[in-house]
């Protein structure tokens, strides 16, 4: 403790007039930090914002910005085209429902989730940064909540931005304000739920492995295979004219859960064959339960996943 004298002597800011310019590059020694320590809530928020920025490659290498930015562009391009068409051909409505947009572009959303969920959690496991986080004032639940919220927010930006474009375009085209606003609001609710659901599922899968490639492949596989299976069985049911079965089958894949949910609760037109949404109130309720149940289960699984991750 011999040095603090020197440190405190050097610590006050140099007086602008008196300080000779030659002292500028002088080593000022160690300075103690007397400022605030903002603790756990702030640390959680810092992890959230860093993970959210990371999902779009911000604060990382130029290379890691390429894919998320391209996907964001691809997500918005159709909306811009639709808006342009609507305005220049003087259509009296948008070519697509707000709630249908995400379903149409689900491949892009899946790719984003598949590429960025492993980016968010597998890297921490692979480069062993996770133990370092837990040496900070956060607890396990803070880490899980920050990562979950960050990816959900990133997905929400991805899905909501094109809706904003559509909405602004619709207003520019002087379509009915009340009708457009209601549709836009429903679209946002649906985009939010979709983001939470997709974020949960893809994070749980990605957190299993420190290998980013495996994570990407596994997330894509789960989304694509489940959707393909549901669609083909729905196709079979369609050919047998079992429309209620079509409506029930939707609970087995993430995007069709969203479709069924918004069809029943938000008055959207279903993208299922024959536009057969949930056949009954019970089915509608099941969609609701599946949606929130899966999201909650994902959170629980992530908590479980990090139970053993202490320092090593």
């Amino acid at each position: 403790m011999s040095q603090p004298d020197a440190a405190t002597a050097a610590a006050p800011p140099p007086e602008p007039s008196a300080a000779p310019p030659t002292d500028v590059i002088h080593n000022i020694g160690y300075r103690a930090y007397e400022g605030p320590r903002l603790g756990r809530g702030y640390a959680r928020l810092s992890l959230f914002s860093q993970s959210l920025r990371g999902a779009y490659g911000l604060g990382r290498s130029a290379k890691s910005k390429v894919l998320p930015m391209i996907l964001l562009g691809v997500m918005c391009a159709p909306a811009l085209i639709m808006v342009a068409v609507t305005i220049f051909t003087h259509m009296n409505r948008l070519p697509v429902q707000y709630t249908r947009y995400a379903v149409l572009l689900q491949a892009v959303i899946t790719l984003f989730a598949a590429s960025q969920a492993p980016q968010s959690v597998s890297r921490d496991l692979r480069f062993k940064t996770t133990p370092l986080y837990f040496s900070r004032p956060i607890e396990r639940i803070d880490y899980v909540a920050a990562k979950y919220a960050a990816l959900a927010t990133a997905l929400f930006l991805l899905t909501a931005l094109p809706l904003v474009i559509l909405y602004v375009g619709a207003l520019l085209a002087k379509l009915g304000f009340a009708h457009q606003t209601a549709g836009f609001a429903k679209g946002l609710v649906s985009a939010l739920l979709l983001s939470v659901l997709f974020a949960g599922i893809s994070l749980v899968i990605a957190a299993v492995t420190p290998r980013r490639g495996f994570g990407v492949a596994a997330v894509i596989a789960v989304f694509v295979i489940s959707y393909a299976a549901v669609s083909s069985v729905q196709g079979v049911a369609m050919s047998q004219e079992r429309y209620d079965v079509i409506g029930w089958l939707g609970v087995f894949s993430p995007i069709t859960v969203i479709d069924g949910f918004q069809t029943w609760f938000l008055g959207a037109t279903s993208a299922f064959p024959h536009a057969a949404g949930p056949p009954s109130a019970v089915a509608g309720l099941v969609y609701l339960l599946v949606l929130f149940g899966v999201a909650a289960a994902c959170f629980g699984l992530l908590m479980r996943r990090y139970r053993k991750v202490g320092l090593s």
């Binding site: 930090y33 903002l38 756990r40 702030y42 810092s46 956060i138």
Partner: peptide
Amino acid sequence: DVSATEFVVHMARMSGLP
């Protein structure tokens, strides 16, 4: 793929520094 500055700033904030 992160610079030392980015990383240490992040860890400082994780420790509660504004």
